[in-house]
Amino acid sequence: MTPDAISDLVAARSAEIIETRRKFHVIPELGFEENETAQAIADRLTAAGLEVETGIGKTGLVGVLRGANPGPTLMIRADIDGLPVDELTGLDFASTNGRMHACGHDGHITMALVAAEILAGLKDQLAGTLIFVFQPAEEIVMGALAMIDDGLFEKYPADRVIGTHLWNQIPTGTIGVNRATVFASADQFRLTVHGKGGHGAMPHTTIDPVAAIAEIISTAQTVVSREVPPNDMGVLTFGQIHGGSAPNVIADNVTVEGTVRAYTPETRIQIMQALERISSNVASAMRASTSFERIHGAPPVINNPEVAAWVTQQASLVVGEGNAREWEPVSVGDDMAEFNDRIPGVYFLLGAAHDDATVAERGIEGHHNAKFDWNEDCLPLGIEVFVRSAVDYLS
Rank of each mutant, 00 (worst) to 15 (best):
V387I: 06
G163T: 07
I250E: 01
N35G: 03
T129M: 01
A102W: 14
E16I: 01
S245Q: 15
G143K: 11
E138M: 01
G320V: 06
A186Y: 14
L317N: 10
E321L: 10
G351I: 01
V391W: 01
V254G: 10
A144S: 01
G31H: 09
V26R: 13
L275W: 02
P3Y: 11
E87W: 14
E34A: 00
A201T: 03
I216K: 10
P171N: 04
E53V: 01
A352E: 06
M202C: 13
N231W: 12
V182W: 05
V359F: 11
S14V: 06
T20S: 03
N323F: 08
V391I: 07
W310M: 12
G234Q: 05
E53C: 01
D43P: 12
V346M: 10
F339V: 04
A390L: 02
D232G: 08
A251D: 14
V391P: 03
C103Y: 11
A94Q: 10
D392M: 12
A15Q: 04
N369C: 13
Q39N: 15
L275G: 03
V64L: 00
E293P: 10
E338V: 11
S14P: 08
E338R: 12
Y393M: 10
H199Y: 07
S389F: 00
N323I: 13
G363T: 07
N35F: 13
I241K: 13
T172S: 07
V114M: 00
M1H: 14
R294Y: 04
V332L: 13
F386D: 00
A15K: 09
T358C: 11
I217R: 02
A68H: 09
N97T: 07
G198I: 10
P136G: 00
T2N: 10
K123N: 06
G176F: 07
T237Q: 14
P344I: 11
S280P: 13
A309N: 02
Y263T: 04
F372Q: 12
H165N: 15
V223F: 06
H108K: 02
K371W: 03
D106G: 06
S280C: 11
D377I: 06
V52G: 05
P265Q: 06
D208N: 07
T237M: 13
G67H: 05
K58A: 05
T181A: 01
V64N: 04
N340V: 15
A15L: 04
F183K: 07
H194I: 04
I131F: 01
E51A: 07
I278H: 08
D106W: 02
V330F: 08
A146D: 03
C378Q: 13
G143F: 05
I213T: 05
L88D: 03
I343C: 00
N303A: 15
A78W: 00
V224T: 07
E138R: 02
I213F: 09
S291A: 05
E384F: 01
A357V: 11
A262H: 08
Q39R: 15
T73L: 10
R294A: 06
